[in-house]
C-alpha cells in the first residue's frame, strides 16, 4: 500500500516522460523508419545514437528527480512519512526503470527494423540477438541508476563542499570498481559460462558479392570475462543500493 502510493506519486511526477517525450520519441523513430530507404546512414546512425542518449538521459533523470526533492524541500515531507528510505528510492528507480525499458525497447526495435529492412534478417542482426543485446543493455543500465545516485546521496550527508565530495566519491567508485572489484569478480564468478558472440555471414550478399556458404562463420568474440563481469556489476549495484538507502536516512542535515 505504502509502496504503491509512492510508486504512483513518482509515476505522476515523471509523467512528462510518458505524456510529452514519448509521443515525440515515437514520431521520430517512425520518421527514421519511413526515411531510411532514402537516407540510410543518417537514419541508422541517429537511431543508434538514441540508444546511447536514452541510457544517460534516464540515469540522469533518476538522480535529478532525487536531487530535486532536496532542492524543493519536498524531501522533508517525503522523509517525514513513516517509510524506510529504500521504499522511497525503489519507487523512484522502479518508475525510471519502466521509462528505461519502454524507451530502449522502441529504440532497439527501430535499429533492428532498419537493419533488417536493409540487410535482411540474418546478416549480423537476428531478432533473438537483438533481444539479447537489449537485455544486457538493461542489465547494465538499470543498476547504473543505483550507482550514479550514490555520490549525490553521500554528499548530502555533509554540510559543506558537497560538489567536491560528490566528485571524489564518484572517482573512488570508478577506480574501486574497475581496479579492484572487477578483477576480483572475474575470479569469483569464473564458474559462469563463457559468452560467445557469433556472426554468420554465410549465404548473404555483402557489397554485391554473395558470400560462400560456411566460409565466413566467424566467432567474432568469445569472452570468459563477460558474464562474470556482468554479475560483478550487478552485485556492486546491490551493495551500492544498500548504501544508498542507509545514507539516505542519515543525510537530512542540510
Amino acid at each position: 500500500m505504502k509502496f504503491k502510493s509512492l510508486f504512483l506519486k513518482e509515476l505522476k511526477q515523471e509523467k512528462a516522460w510518458f505524456m510529452y517525450i514519448f509521443p515525440g520519441f515515437v514520431i521520430l523513430e517512425l520518421l527514421f523508419l519511413s526515411l531510411y530507404k532514402h537516407y540510410l546512414w543518417q537514419c541508422f546512425a541517429l537511431s543508434m545514437i538514441f540508444i546511447v542518449v536514452i541510457f544517460f538521459a534516464v540515469i540522469f533523470s533518476a538522480s535529478h528527480s532525487l536531487v530535486n526533492e532536496w532542492k524543493l524541500h519536498t524531501s522533508q515531507f517525503l522523509f517525514s512519512l513513516p517509510v524506510r528510505g529504500w521504499h522511497i528510492l525503489l519507487a523512484k528507480f522502479a518508475v525510471h526503470s519502466i521509462v528505461f525499458i519502454v524507451f530502449s525497447f522502441i529504440a532497439f526495435f527501430t535499429v533492428y527494423l532498419i537493419a533488417k529492412g536493409q540487410w535482411g534478417e540474418s546478416v549480423w542482426i537476428k531478432s533473438t540477438g537483438v533481444v539479447k543485446i537489449w537485455l544486457i543493455y538493461l542489465f547494465v543500465g538499470i543498476p547504473s541508476m543505483f550507482i550514479e545516485v550514490f555520490p549525490r546521496i553521500t554528499s548530502n550527508c555533509f554540510m559543506r563542499f558537497r560538489k567536491l565530495i560528490a566528485s571524489f566519491v564518484a572517482i573512488v567508485l570508478f577506480i574501486g570498481f574497475f581496479n579492484y572489484l572487477l578483477p576480483l569478480g572475474w575470479k569469483i564468478f569464473s564458474f559462469l559460462p563463457e559468452a560467445t558472440f557469433t556472426t554468420s555471414m554465410s549465404g548473404q550478399v555483402f557489397q554485391g558479392v554473395p558470400m560462400p556458404p560456411d566460409l565466413l562463420t566467424i566467432k567474432t568474440a568469445t569472452s570468459e570475462n563477460f558474464l562474470p563481469g556482468l554479475a560483478t556489476w550487478f552485485l556492486f549495484a546491490v551493495l551500492i543500493f544498500i548504501g544508498d538507502c542507509l545514507l539516505l536516512e542519515k543525510g537530512e542535515e542540510g
Partner: peptide, 26 residues
C-alpha cells in the same frame, strides 16, 4: 505528525491529491 518549517509540498499536486497520497501512509 510533523509540520516542517519549510515549504515542503509538491507544487504539482492538487490538495485532493496530497490528501489522498498522505492518507495512504497513516
Amino acid at each position: 505528525a510533523y509540520v516542517s518549517e519549510l515549504d515542503v509540498l509538491y507544487p504539482w499536486m492538487t490538495v485532493r491529491e496530497i490528501l489522498d497520497f498522505t492518507s495512504n501512509f497513516y
